[in-house]
């Protein structure tokens, strides 16, 4: 039958076309070492907050070492650790520290690792641009707004001098490392938070929510504020020693507290035994400043960098 022939031809053409397109960023189709001494594949997975950092590192590293393939996934900090302790990834991205169950899982699988800090972030508290009554909030005030069981729904309940405006809260959902860190720092316990705020996994949506609501208040990483300064106003935070605006400097010197947080990667000992992974991790730390700048985070201080380097060295040797 003539249409069978035509169908077969189409399928064949499609298959050929697809097979012919096995290109890559560097024009390499195999992992031979033409163009760079190193070759191999490095797998990262984990927090979607830390992913932009790892992606920036991967991109820059691959430009110098075209023989190496670096891939980054975003299964979440928990999902990343699960794969990491299952020996499916080489390095785990994390926006929080590894937890007890995960430590056990890795131990059972015989995987040793180190906690390597690669950047800093400042969690920013933002309000609507038209909000002209608040410039600074103390941690106790933030706690009053956000703690579990809080029923505050008006700005004048936060401080008597504030006007009578409805308080609308936006923030990340419970699965976000940002949520964990904020609740831990402000309310004293991770996960301790009121439940009736507008939660979302996408910080851009929080931006939109606060920008669209006169009495809106939200929190997320510094980069989302810096990219939306035309729509939002950032609130200074008083951690006990005066009101501080989040910025690269105040996060690095520690004065923006308690909402400065470290961001980590966890390489495994087995992975570090491979030359390309070692080179990549070294590259990550050598270029920490450039990488943080591209990913819109706050870079490490000299001390933090030295500490991280030491950890990597000890893991590689031990």
């Amino acid at each position: 039958m003539r249409h069978r022939g035509l169908a077969a031809l189409t399928v064949g053409a499609l298959a050929l076309g697809v097979a012919a397109c096995g290109g890559s960023a560097n024009g390499e189709t195999s992992s031979s070492d033409a163009g760079g001494k190193l070759s191999g594949t490095i797998k990262l997975d984990g927090s979607s907050t830390v992913a932009p950092l790892s992606e920036a590192a991967a991109e820059m590293f691959q430009a110098d070492n075209p023989g190496v393939r670096v891939t980054v996934g975003t299964s979440g900090t928990g999902g990343g650790f699960e794969k990491f302790c299952n020996a499916e990834t080489d390095i785990s991205d994390a926006s929080r520290q590894i937890e007890a169950d995960e430590v056990d899982a890795c131990k059972k699988a015989g995987i040793a690792y180190e906690e390597v800090q690669v950047a800093n972030d400042g969690l920013s508290v933002v309000v609507n641009k038209a909000n002209d009554w608040v410039t600074c909030l103390t941690v106790p005030q933030l706690r009053k707004i956000w703690e579990k069981g809080s029923k505050l729904d008006n700005w004048n309940q936060v401080d008597a001098s504030f006007p009578d405006k409805e308080l609308e809260l936006f923030g990340p959902g419970t699965d976000s490392g940002t949520f964990d860190y904020f609740t831990g720092a402000v309310n004293g316990e991770e996960g301790n938070s009121r439940t009736d705020y507008q939660a979302t996994e996408d910080d851009n949506v929080t931006v939109q929510g606060v920008a669209g609501s006169e009495g809106g208040l939200g929190y997320f990483g510094l980069s989302y504020y810096e990219q939306n300064q035309d729509k939002l106003k950032v609130v200074q935070v008083d951690g006990g020693s005066g009101c501080v605006t989040p910025s690269k400097e105040t996060v690095q010197d520690g004065s923006y507290k308690p909402l400065s947080r470290p961001l980590f990667v966890y390489p495994s000992d087995k992975a570090l035994a491979r030359p390309e992974v070692q080179a990549f991790t070294k590259f990550y730390l050598d270029n920490a400043e450039r990488i943080a700048a591209q990913a819109l985070f706050v870079p490490l201080t000299a001390d933090q960098e030295a500490a991280s380097r030491q950890k990597v060295d000890s893991l590689a040797k031990g």
């Binding site: 991109e59 891939t71 910080d203």
Partner: peptide, 30 residues
Amino acid sequence: LTFVTFNPEGLNSAFTALPIQIFNWISRPQ
């Protein structure tokens, strides 16, 4: 994955897909 800099090389290749990339880009601050 959300970050892959090479095209799939066979049935056993690591890969990414357009909806993932779209969702990833929409969620970026820039």
